[in-house]
Amino acid sequence: MNEKEVLIEVKDLRKYFQVGRHQVLKAVDGVSFKIYKGETLGLVGESGCGKTTCGKTVMGLYDATGGEVIFDGVEIHSLHKKEKKEFTKRAQIIFQDPYSSLNPRMTVGDIIGEGIDIHKLYTGKERQEKIYELLELVGLNREHALRFPHEFSGGQRQRIGIARALAIEPEFIVCDEPISALDVSIQAQIVNLLIELQKKRNLTYLFIAHDLSMVKHISDRVGVMYLGNMVEFASSDELYSKPLHPYTKALMSAIPIPDPKEEKKKTRIPIEGEIPSPVNPKPGCRFAARCKYATELCRSETPKLEEMEEGHYVACHRVKEI
């Protein structure tokens, strides 16, 4: 298949929050990208950059302030109640915190089975067998179906969250920082499980994280967000080997190298200054206040995301000079 099939197209997506009488927090401000069927798109950036809000707006958990999210040819924010239910059957989310995303009063079997019941997929013995199958698929035992969430570790709870997301056999899953609350040893297990499930079920992922090493491991293409804007977008290999935006370069320089000798040779690029407030942001590049290359143009005119090389997009006025 030479021509990749687009599953999701995000066009000029905006999500603003009113935080005062005259103040607007621009969490996501004009973000655009496509996700192809069967691929993993990584979304990275420091805390507060808007990546989780972007993921939740793509899922329809937040109403968009502006722009479009087109899923398989249909704009999701204009769907009626019945159509929205059909969309949620095809698209699911794995939440960041495995401790607060599971209902403590429900057994694991009921948590996983809730989606099955809502969409009336299976009943009786068939439903029970499906729950057992899902538990075993994510590396748990069928006996766990009768237990409650507090009886499990963080890694096990995240596996339950993955089983719940898979219960209604979706095509697309938003993975909202699914490993950030877990121990390092468990993180790799969960990421490898997601990769394995993707191959088995031909899943499409939007993988949101701030762990750059994990994003490289799992993603086909990666978008870098800064303060509500997409500043760089490229294939995973291209972005990690040849970052072009000053912010991306600084992020990549912070990735630790396992070999201590190589780590000593590495030059880190410090980012100085405070992150500007996303509330009523000033015109111009959002990174200008912390960028050593910034000029008056950067402070007055917002750069557009432009293709510098095939498939490699950057939003920077000075990218050709630095």
Rank of each mutant, 00 (worst) to 15 (best):
residue 127 R to W: 10
residue 128 Q to E: 13
residue 128 Q to M: 08
residue 129 E to C: 08
residue 129 E to F: 08
residue 129 E to A: 14
residue 130 K to I: 07
residue 130 K to F: 08
residue 131 I to M: 03
residue 131 I to Q: 05
residue 132 Y to R: 13
residue 132 Y to V: 06
residue 133 E to D: 12
residue 133 E to H: 13
residue 134 L to R: 02
residue 134 L to P: 02
residue 137 L to V: 07
residue 139 G to M: 07
residue 139 G to W: 04
residue 140 L to F: 11
residue 141 N to L: 11
residue 141 N to K: 15
residue 142 R to M: 10
residue 142 R to A: 07
residue 143 E to D: 14
residue 143 E to M: 14
residue 144 H to I: 04
residue 144 H to A: 06
residue 146 L to V: 10
residue 147 R to H: 14
residue 147 R to Y: 10
residue 147 R to A: 09
residue 148 F to M: 06
residue 150 H to N: 13
residue 151 E to P: 02
residue 154 G to S: 10
residue 156 Q to E: 15
residue 156 Q to M: 12
residue 156 Q to I: 09
residue 157 R to W: 01
residue 157 R to V: 03
residue 160 I to D: 01
residue 162 I to C: 04
residue 162 I to N: 02
residue 164 R to G: 07
residue 166 L to R: 03
residue 169 E to S: 14
residue 171 E to I: 09
residue 172 F to V: 10
residue 172 F to E: 02
residue 174 V to H: 04
residue 175 C to V: 09
residue 176 D to S: 04
residue 177 E to C: 08
residue 177 E to N: 12
residue 177 E to M: 10
residue 177 E to L: 10
residue 178 P to E: 06
residue 178 P to S: 11
residue 179 I to D: 05
residue 181 A to C: 11
residue 182 L to V: 06
residue 185 S to H: 10
residue 190 I to L: 02
residue 191 V to E: 05
residue 191 V to P: 04
residue 191 V to R: 00
residue 193 L to C: 11
residue 194 L to R: 00
residue 195 I to G: 02
residue 197 L to P: 06
residue 199 K to R: 15
residue 199 K to M: 08
residue 200 K to W: 09
residue 201 R to W: 14
residue 204 T to Q: 11
residue 205 Y to L: 00
residue 206 L to D: 12
residue 207 F to S: 07
residue 208 I to Y: 03
residue 208 I to M: 03
residue 209 A to M: 08
residue 209 A to V: 06
